[in-house]
Amino acid sequence: MRRAALPLCLAGVLLASGAARADEDELEAGRVIAVQDRPFRLAHEFTVSAGVLPMDAFYTGLSLGGSYTLHLTDLVSWEAIAFHYSASVDKGLSDQLLERWSVEDTDEPVIQYLVSSHAIFTPFYGKLTLLNNSIVNVSTYLSVGGGAIRYQGEGGFRPHFSIGPGLRFLFGQVVSARLDARNMISPDFLGGADYILHVTASVSFNFGSSRPTDLGDDELEEADLADPFGDLDELYPLSDPERGKKREGEQ
């Protein structure tokens, strides 16, 4: 009797575990992700920035600048123009060369200002909690673009190509804070290329919420005239009996 009971128990356990697994499979067959609409809609953005150009061996550039960005969609925007003036702070390398090895440096080009234009892609948008208490809306983006760099003295202009990530904290429809790290390659006509890193912290002010890519007024009016509940009534005829009766009368 005991010998017969053991396989029966095992079979029972296996069947039960199989049924449980089937339930889990059913539950895990679909995945529901709720993605909310973005609460803030940027259109015309004016930005004031302070930054640093830390890479040059001889000086550190401290920059001050601004930009205008036109937001075309939630995903794509165009930083139409950005201008950054840089003040150089000596790192003391010239003195070191002179004191330690009695070597005088040649005149290295020093960045005076940068003018650029970037396409900005914002694939990430979400919310951060601060100490599990308050919520800040954030977006992460990538800037790709280029422009010109003006060097002091007879350094003239050089082109540059730029790419870099950025992070935006949205404090409302108007004000947001940005952090950008732009990696620039500036080809030298005499040969070679310079790598320049520009890190900026910015405050942005957004004006308006309608974008050039939005539907025109005429198209919106047409959209309004269409029966917005028509499709719903067809799907759920019992959801609004009054409307159902009206439609029957019309027919």
């Binding site: 992700i33 993605v35 939630d74 995903l75 694939p123 990430f124 948008y125 979400g126 919310k127 951060l128 909690t129 601060l130 100490l131 599990n132 919520i135 800040v136 954030v138 977006s139 992460t140």
Partner: peptide, 19 residues
């Protein structure tokens, strides 16, 4: 790690991140 949150990638996938 005071900041923790979620971001939607292309309004589709949700990713978790922290500063």
């Amino acid at each position: 790690n005071p900041l923790y949150g979620k971001q939607a990638f292309l309004n589709d996938e949700v990713s978790h991140h922290a500063l």
